[in-house]
Design a protein around this nucleic acid. Sequence first.
DNA 1: CCAGTATCCTGCAGGC
DNA 2: TGCCTGCAGGATACTG
Length: 273
Amino acid sequence: MPELPEVETVRRGLAAHTAGLQLTGVRGAPVTMRRPLRPGHIRERLAGRTLVEPGRRGKYLLLRVEGGGALLIHLGMSGRLLLTTPETPGVRHTHLTLEMGNGRELRLIDPRRFGLAVWLEEAEIATDPALARLGPEPLAPEIDRLLPPRLKAHRAPLKSLLLDQTVVAGAGNIYATEALWRAGIRPTRRGDRTSAARLARLARELRAVLLEAVEQGGTTLRDFAGPDGNAGYFEVRLQAYGRAGRPCPRCGAVLGSTRIAGRATVWCTACQR
DNA sequence: CCAGTATCCTGCAGGC
DNA sequence: TGCCTGCAGGATACTG
């Protein structure tokens, strides 16, 4: 589910509702995820610690604690973080519950278990393999000059490159699709066969669509909710994603679809070249 | 090294 | 109603 805007929305919600709170208890079911959730390990590292301003890198969330170290969280395809009270009825696939000093709880729910929650010591935050490999942050203004040469360096379709977190961190299927539509570039076009000017346009559009989505609180599809339970509002602004067979909002031609890198890809065969 | 595919897992929508 | 298939916002191990 969550791409950069959704994760950033969660981060902001957590910053507003959890910073400064002490963790009074940690509960977790011993489930196995791709990289295993280790509730026992997490419990001993987190209990009694005070949460500070959370961080984000790409689609990764860093629940930092006072004195150093962080719980590294990735929401995968179906992960959610919900701010609840102890009375809130439990739901299936709740893998981790953080009890906080103000009587509220933070619950990690992930039915498909593609997500991740591991403790990182302060020094490991800089050396964690997954984090270290990430490409530049697309919200940074410098992305206009950083991204084009990185795209130019590969022969793969631009859609695949935008989804590659080592090329640029944070885009997923929705926003990669939208950025290409906005830039008027065919998703199948190879990186090395696209002009520098068009690649710069793509970088600008990627940043712009992500910023707009962050302002709207992310996109709501079937299972996203911010930590306060509110939904995002970007879905109504999607121009291409999920609209195959419907008219292109720019030129009116019928939007087509195909699969690139195993992902549904929608684009306008008339005005995306 | 590079690009493309298979795979992890559950839930849901649609066809019969 | 039930059963089956395919698909879903991600990342990585593997293949050629």
